[in-house]
Structure formats: structure tokens, C-alpha cells
Amino acid sequence: MQRKERQLVVFNLGQEEYGVDILQVREIKRLSEIARVPHAPDFVKGVINLRGNIIPVIDLHKRFDLGETEATDESRIVIVSVQDITVGITVDAVSEVITLTKEALTPPPPLVAGIEASFIEAIGKLKDRLLILLNMDRILGLDEVAATKKVAEKAAQEGVAE
């Protein structure tokens, strides 16, 4: 990251504040009807219709093992695009967009708030607040997807064999 400053979209999940690089954010939507996807990994909450495109939605609570929360009026779906892939992530609330200088970002310590360290790109310091900057590539588990796909294909083949 050569840029001096980064703008982050800040949102809440449980008690923590998280940020995603604004360049990855396409839009922020109210919670709409999410269609469940049969036989998908459990962190996939479902799919939504985004202007004619079918977009998967990831439940960050499940992804981070934070336990379930009730959807509220504040709940939002943040649509992000990473490596040609567009997905929605559910968050409890979107609070603001902030600008952080490069200096304000530090590498993540090995253990943070219980969520998997590889999901964290950096920790942002903002006066008395700490912001967890998410590594969306990892969260979307693009390599993991390939793995699940293989498992599914293998299962399907075994199904045929029987």
C-alpha cells in the first residue's frame, strides 16, 4: 500500500468497530430479502438480487464466530468487490467514513478479540478508538472456495458412482 491516506468505511459488528477500504465498497444497502442457498457453507447467508445480478451475502457474525445477533433497523448489507467477485457482507450498523494516514495503521498483533488473525489486515488507531481493518480477500476465502468446490464435485461424483 503506497497511498499515504486511506479512506475506510466503518461499521459495527457486536462490540467491535471494523473498517473496509472504501475502494472495495460498491454500495451500502438496507437488509432486504435474502434467499437461502441450499447446501452452501454456513457463513453464506444467502443471495440477494442486486439490480438483476445475483450476489452472495456473507454473514460476518458466522464468519468470525461471533454468535448470532438479531437484525435491527440499523443492520446493513455492505456490497464489496474483491478480485472480480462481488459479495455482500452483513453488518450490525454502518457508522461513518474516515480517513486514516498510513502512520495510524499498524500490523495486527497475533491475537485480537478472538477473530482469526489472518482476517485482519491492520489495526487503525483513531484517538481513543481502535479500528480493525479487514482483509477481504481472506474473509472471502477465495482459496477456500476452490476447496469447497472440489469437495462438492467429489461428493457429486461419488453420488453418481453409487
Binding site: E33, A35, V37, P38, H39, A40, V44, G46, V47, I48, N49, G52, N53, I54, I55, P56, I85, T86, V87, L140, L142, V145, A146, T148, K149, A152, E153, A155, A156, G159
Partner: peptide
């Protein structure tokens, strides 16, 4: 017929998705 984002990979038993008249997604 709409293709399902490749992010979800191959879903067993599902051939694709469609958008219903009310904007909802059906598989």
C-alpha cells in the same frame, strides 16, 4: 436463468437461479 456467482462454486442439485417478478431470488 441467471448464473450464480462463481464465489459459491458448484451447488449440488442447483442448476442456476432466477429473479422472480417481485425481485426475490429463486433457485
Amino acid at each position: 436463468i441467471k448464473s450464480i456467482d462463481r464465489f459459491l462454486g458448484n451447488l449440488p442439485g442447483i442448476g442456476g437461479a432466477t429473479i422472480l417478478g417481485d425481485g426475490k431470488v429463486a433457485f
